[in-house]
Design a protein around this nucleic acid. Sequence first.
DNA 1: CCATTACCCCATCGGAATAGTAGATTACTG
DNA 2: CAGTAATCTACTATTCCGATGGGGTAATGG
Lengths: 136, 136
Amino acid sequence: MLSKKTKYGIKALSFLARQENQIPVPIADIAKSENISIKFLESILLLLRYSGFLGAKKGKGGGYYLIKEPKDINMAHVYRILEGPIALLPCVSHNFYEKCDDCVDEANCSVHKLMTEVRDNTLMILENNTLADIAF
Amino acid sequence: MLSKKTKYGIKALSFLARQENQIPVPIADIAKSENISIKFLESILLLLRYSGFLGAKKGKGGGYYLIKEPKDINMAHVYRILEGPIALLPCVSHNFYEKCDDCVDEANCSVHKLMTEVRDNTLMILENNTLADIAF
DNA sequence: CCATTACCCCATCGGAATAGTAGATTACTG
DNA sequence: CAGTAATCTACTATTCCGATGGGGTAATGG
């Protein structure tokens, strides 16, 4: 299941994508509009800033704003930053690969086969969706 | 991410599906073959028995065995028993639906839209795979 | 009766998710 | 320069769940 962090992060990005102009939006405004705990959202937005999606401005008139076009923000990328691996098992993940302790022969593992199929499809969907596709 | 419970459960089912005859297999044998903690596997197999996938026999010569044909065991069904909802969010799930606390308008929620698409695809894959498809 | 095996209850341990508190820092405004 | 609005940072608390193990009970077969 998706963590609230990811859910809130995507909602916040969508909210910012729907803003007509590029002026900074304070955390509190986003939190209120999307019904998110301010402090929790704060840490999420910080992460999204570090990851290159958002810019921030301090002081009066400050807040967060998108620094990329919504159509250039790939949801697979967002997902990996917020949630981590797209695959349901570490042994199926490209970016976060880890071998299973219990698994002797990965190539013939029934779970591996099934989850690879799931992963490939999920990845395709996330990569084919940009923030612009889902924000409105 | 998939819990070990689900991973072990599917591996155990696959192992039983690969048995040539229908004589009961002791938990310890399955655990050893698949490198799973005996006690943990015990609770998983019990759940699978309650759910109608397995039969059990006590005492000497006892163990667990499949009571359905592998080709009649649907992986979406197995997944729901072991892991729970297939959807990544409760508000997207059919069988485990729950409204989001924070979400005002579900129909226009960007996360909801995206996760619905992911869910539909994952479900299709799981429903199109039987134990017979993945066990060998 | 004895060995074997499934069944059942419960304790524990660790880590992740979520949220809150307190204060430092930065920047705009008048 | 003073005041205020906002981000930034670090620490803490709590709750919850995944995973595992201990120990005992019940059924079965020889």
